[in-house]
Design a protein around this nucleic acid. Sequence first.
DNA 1: ATGGTCGTTAGACGA
Length: 267
Amino acid sequence: MKIATWNVNSLRARADRVEDWLRRTDADVLAIQETKCKDENFPWELFENNGYEVAHFGFSQWNGVAIASRVGLDDVERTFSEQPTFGKGGKDPVQEARAIGATCNGVRIWSLYVPNGRALEDEHMPYKLEWLRQLKENAARWIADDPQAQIALMGDWNIAPLDEDVWDIDYFREKELTHVSRPERAAFEAFLEAGFSDVVRPHTPGPGVYTYWDYTKLRFPKKEGMRIDFTLASPALAQRVGDAWIDREERKGKGASDHAPVVVELD
DNA sequence: ATGGTCGTTAGACGA
């Protein structure tokens, strides 16, 4: 079984690309982030015409997550328990469309779009950290309740856990940029301490291996990217991983997302 | 030339 995650940066703008990619890659499950649409604008036919069931969670032009599967799509959950809300500048807090879960052929898939902290002192940063903490609480409980549970936490984590996960750590430090700060990295590592593991890195060792390249400043041709999209697997699922790769080719050409798809093959 | 882009959408805002 082949499972994948991809921040498509608008599903409607990327519909042809996504369809071509699904056919080419022969993926069984795709966790999608940043659909950037409501249900009424969602391209349902794209998936149905290609033999996939799909569940979507999105209610505005922001965020939006989905799971497409051709091996079953059961027990769909939108948001995780105690998922933090966010109210900018004291506005009424809203539950953002950043997490959707479904069981696909025995594997509990979560498609996750972790909040962007924006800046170290921005009000989005504590939101990001608390969002991750609550997700980790859930994830730890899921494997405590069932040590054999096969769980894949897939998505855009907006964190570069290692210095080699950005093209120049000194640039990030000098500019005091997000994604590499100590609290963000600690929030990520808490998942590893809870028993989850990054099942892609062992098959795609760095340095210089990334999943995202900013559209600006010619980051892609200059090979200046970031590794911020991850699949963290529960112990039982990690045992099944036979191979994994980052589809860097998909970042090329006109009309590409700024993120590459990340694929995990299960035995 | 120390910048260089895209998406949502219709003037900004988000990444």
